[in-house]
């Protein structure tokens, strides 16, 4: 099943001359685990932001389940295809308040589920008291875990992960990968991710398919074996 398709996506610089992204074609099926590699400044973040419809594009289109995504479909699309920043942005308050934040948006008809959250926390060896902590005292790794929890509790179909572990220590990196795997393995043939990483070992761990960005263009590097159940 084709979940997501980008067709000849392009983005120009504000001056309108140079292309920041050009002729991006990308198809994502359920079960795809795509890693994006490429040198610094090649446009990996811009690519992910364009795919998540966070930035305006100059040309091309994005299809979500065969429908173009524009106007008021965009918030609903973003709710299913969530982009995660490299540096997590949390709102002031407790972890609990952060996790409840998305449910105040119109795009969500469901409610915060303390049960689901307890299950997730259990797998991270944490108790519910973790939720009471104010976010300003969190370490970078913990903050990223909260941002990821906030996203995956919404049961998204697709995750755009923009170097989520680039600034984190090994332990936090392992937990992030573990959490993403928990989310993915719930529906391994329907969910997918696009993961930007600089770390070769991480790429080999998280990718079934590797694409490479170079000067704003995307090319398919390799296709790895499909991931089995862990």
């Amino acid at each position: 099943m084709v979940l997501f398709e980008a067709r000849r996506l392009g983005r120009k610089e504000p001056n309108g001359v140079n292309w920041l992204l050009q002729d991006i074609d990308l198809e994502i099926d359920g079960g795809d685990r795509i890693a994006v590699v490429g040198p610094t400044g090649s446009g990996k973040t811009l690519l992910l932001r364009a795919l998540a419809r966070l930035d305006p594009v100059s040309s091309g289109e994005i299809l979500w389940r065969d429908q173009t995504v524009f106007g008021d479909d965009v918030p609903r699309f973003r709710r299913q295809a969530i982009y995660l920043h490299q540096s997590p942005t949390l709102i002031d308050g407790t972890i609990d308040e952060n996790l409840r934040l998305p449910f105040s948006f119109r795009a969500h008809c469901d409610e915060f589920s303390p049960k689901l959250m307890s299950t997730l926390l259990e797998q991270l060896d944490r108790t519910d008291s973790f939720l009471k902590r104010p976010v300003r005292n969190l370490s970078g790794g913990e903050a990223q875990i909260v941002a990821l929890l906030r996203a995956i509790q919404l049961q998204p179909t697709l995750l755009f992960l923009d170097e989520p572990t680039a600034a984190l220590d090994d332990d936090s990196t392992r937990r992030i990968e573990q959490l993403v795997a928990i989310w993915f393995d719930e529906r391994p043939d329907q969910r997918a991710w696009v993961w930007v990483s600089h770390d070769k070992q991480q790429v080999s761990r998280v990718a079934s398919k590797i694409v490479e960005m170079n000067a704003g263009r995307l090319s398919i590097a390799t296709e790895q074996q499909r991931r089995g159940s862990p």
Binding site: H85, F105, A107, H108
Partner: peptide
């Protein structure tokens, strides 16, 4: 800006 964007990545409309 980053707060706004974080909200929008989670499905917030521009008004929200």
């Amino acid at each position: 800006r980053s707060q706004l964007e974080a909200m929008m990545t989670l499905g917030a409309t521009r008004w929200e």
